[in-house]
Amino acid sequence: MWHTVRPLRAMHITQLNRECLLHLFSFLDKDSRKNLASTCPQLQDVFEDPALWPLLHFRSLLELKKDNFLLSPALRSLSICWYSSRVQVCSVEDWLKSALQRSICSRHESLVNDFLLRVCDRCPNLASVTLSGCGHVTDDCLARLLRCCPRLRALRLENCARVTNRTLAAVAAHGRALQTLHVDFCRNVSAAGLRRLRAACPRLVLRAEHSAAMIPDQLPSASGTALLKLMPR
């Protein structure tokens, strides 16, 4: 006896339930999620679900200006790792920068600070932050992050030239939940500042590779300023 085999009907993606759609979206990068969400309101609604965004990783500062991600209380881990030749330009002391170098920095110097201020307002449950190559991030911005994210357990900073002992003091004052702090290659962090932090927070896992051994920023002397004026710009 022969049985007729009915062909399988194709299922449209929007027929999947919410849990399946979230699982599907989780395999996509930020741009792919945004592109898929633009195809219909139902998928846009999935894109805007905070459950989809517990982790955010950015490989360049320009990515911070895009609208292909969501900041929400669901965010637990944030990393901004900029590995570019322009990082070296950002690390040059301001008074030593040429006009070209200042022009390059002016295009992105406020991006990380402005972005972190948005994080402070929207992501109070943040547990881990990694910043690498963010030469313009400031002590004030990091202090506010520590105050606004009381559950922050890990703060990893690498090659952040403007980070100073003031950030260490903010950790001692506001980083009650902080368990791990890295300040690697942050030249304006001193050995004395590290000693004070270790004394104030003996349980903190503190790492500062090469930071205290690097030459910190210095204000130009009168002779240095005169010599600088003679140098080609």
Rank of each mutant, 00 (worst) to 15 (best):
E19S: 07
T225R: 15
S26Y: 02
L178P: 03
A226I: 05
S91M: 14
R18D: 03
L126G: 00
I215C: 02
L126Q: 00
A74H: 06
F27I: 03
L55K: 12
E209D: 14
T164E: 00
G135S: 10
R59P: 01
A192W: 10
V119R: 01
T138C: 05
D49A: 13
L111W: 11
Q88E: 15
L24I: 02
R144M: 09
A161V: 10
V87E: 15
C81K: 10
A143Y: 05
R207T: 14
S211V: 06
R102C: 07
S26E: 07
V87P: 07
P41L: 09
L55S: 10
D114V: 11
L62P: 11
L181Y: 09
E63C: 08
L155C: 06
L230Y: 10
Q179R: 15
K66G: 08
L70P: 03
L36E: 01
A74W: 08
S190F: 12
T167K: 14
S223N: 10
S84K: 05
C105Y: 05
P202E: 04
R144Q: 10
R162P: 02
S221P: 04
L131V: 00
S72W: 05
L70M: 11
V183A: 08
T167H: 11
R198N: 04
E209W: 11
L56P: 00
L194N: 10
E109G: 03
Q218Y: 13
K97M: 13
V89R: 04
H23W: 06
A199M: 15
D31M: 01
T225A: 14
E93H: 09
S128R: 07
A170E: 07
L168W: 02
L116S: 03
S60A: 13
R195F: 04
V92I: 12
S103P: 04
P50T: 02
E19N: 11
D94K: 15
F115Q: 07
L62Q: 14
P7A: 03
F58Q: 02
H108C: 06
L146T: 06
A212I: 15
H136Q: 02
L204G: 09
L227F: 04
V112F: 06
R166M: 12
A212G: 14
H23I: 01
F69L: 04
H23Q: 04
L178C: 09
R102N: 14
L22R: 01
V119F: 04
R122G: 02
L204I: 12
H182C: 09
S79A: 10
L96M: 13
A173H: 13
